[in-house]
């Protein structure tokens, strides 16, 4: 549903308008050479070139310097930050980028559950700080897509020493950036921010260069989202994009829910995704099997895939879905056909 077209501000966003075969040819060769290739792409040239079970024939062009540190935040709780982190993280991994997802929710972590990795979290960042383990030992690699790694900040009942301020998470990101071991430095570091603007929020946004604001089209979430956007801008994070979650076209049609364009008018942020309300989300959450792995793909899963693609290309939507068109009734519809 959300799919929507990409803006024409970016050279790499031309994929929507041109045929796939012509896409790479339309880019100037010099530009193609200068475009940074993700490290995973470079690694694919090896003998075991991951004929990786990639679902997409084409890959998005990675824009910006790696690792890109993206904080996924919202202000209000329950809007889908963790779901977004899990699905976008896994989408990026499926697209061939190496991703480290950090669950920065101190005390109330859930990202491990959504990724189905809860039984494999033995060490967290707190143990790394204490010297109980090394950072690479605390990273949990997803067996389905090994280019996705999870790092939890703390165990449910343990306490993160805040006397270091936000330095701890900055050290972690710096250590990942300078990683020489087998996976190399990641292409993306996704930080799942806790709700609110408390110490957890301050810790989570500290190392970020860009932000994805997740909101739902209701007035409470929008007010919190506006405040969080203001804090992020005050902190120097200017690259903020928005995902509008849990859209229901039937309510929009009856004017019982704000449309995506209304939300955008209120917040003034570029969109990278519109996620429809989908019953598959709760099923995938309970199973620990992210939505984007569903076969056949679900509506919300496809929307997450598109959002991940735009995130890679630093692109934004130029058109959004308004309402669902009624189905055309055939000749035999009168007879129930």
């Amino acid at each position: 549903m959300a799919s929507l077209l990409s803006s024409n501000t970016n050279v790499s966003s031309s994929f929507v308008r041109f045929s796939p075969s012509s896409h790479s040819q339309l880019l100037p060769s010099s530009l193609r050479e200068t475009l940074p290739l993700p490290s995973s792409v470079r690694r694919r040239r090896g003998p075991f070139a991951s004929r990786a079970v990639l679902q997409w024939n084409r890959k998005p062009q990675l824009a910006g310097e790696t690792p890109r540190v993206v904080v996924i935040t919202s202000g209000k709780g329950g809007v889908g930050k963790t779901t977004t982190t899990a699905n976008i993280g896994l989408s990026l991994a499926r697209l061939g980028f190496s991703v480290v997802a950090i669950d920065a929710d101190v005390g109330l972590r859930n990202l491990d559950l959504l990724l189905g990795l809860e039984n494999r979290v033995n060490y967290t960042a707190v143990e790394v700080l204490n010297g109980d383990c090394r950072l690479d030992q605390a990273l949990v690699r997803d067996r389905r897509w090994p280019s996705l790694e999870l790092l939890c900040i703390s165990k449910p009942r343990s306490k993160l020493p805040l006397s270091f301020g936000s330095k701890a998470i900055i050290w972690i990101v710096d250590a990942l950036r300078s990683r020489d071991a087998a996976p190399g430095p990641p292409d993306f570091v996704l930080i799942d921010c806790p709700a609110g603007i408390d110490a957890g929020f301050i810790t989570a946004i500290a190392p970020a260069n860009e932000a994805v604001l997740v909101t739902t089209p209701d007035i409470t979430a929008l007010r919190d989202a506006d405040r969080v956007t203001g804090l992020l801008e005050c902190d120097g994070i200017k690259d903020i994009k928005m995902i509008v979650n849990r859209i229901r076209t039937d309510l929009i049609r009856g004017e019982d829910m704000m449309s995506v364009l209304d939300v955008q008018e209120m917040l003034g942020l570029p969109l990278i995704g519109v996620i429809p309300e989908d019953s598959e989300v709760i099923k995938s959450t309970n199973r620990g099997h992210p939505l984007v792995l569903n076969q056949p793909p679900a509506l919300a899963g496809l929307a997450f895939e598109q959002a991940a693609w735009r995130l890679v290309e630093q692109d934004s939507m130029t058109a959004v879905m308004l309402e669902e068109e009624p189905k055309k009734r055939g000749f035999f519809s009168f007879f129930g056909g």
Binding site: M1, S3, L299, V320, M321
Partner: peptide
């Protein structure tokens, strides 16, 4: 998308 047809509106 997934068999459903949605009307698109440009972002302004």
């Amino acid at each position: 998308m997934c068999g459903k047809v949605y009307r698109l509106a440009p972002v302004t």
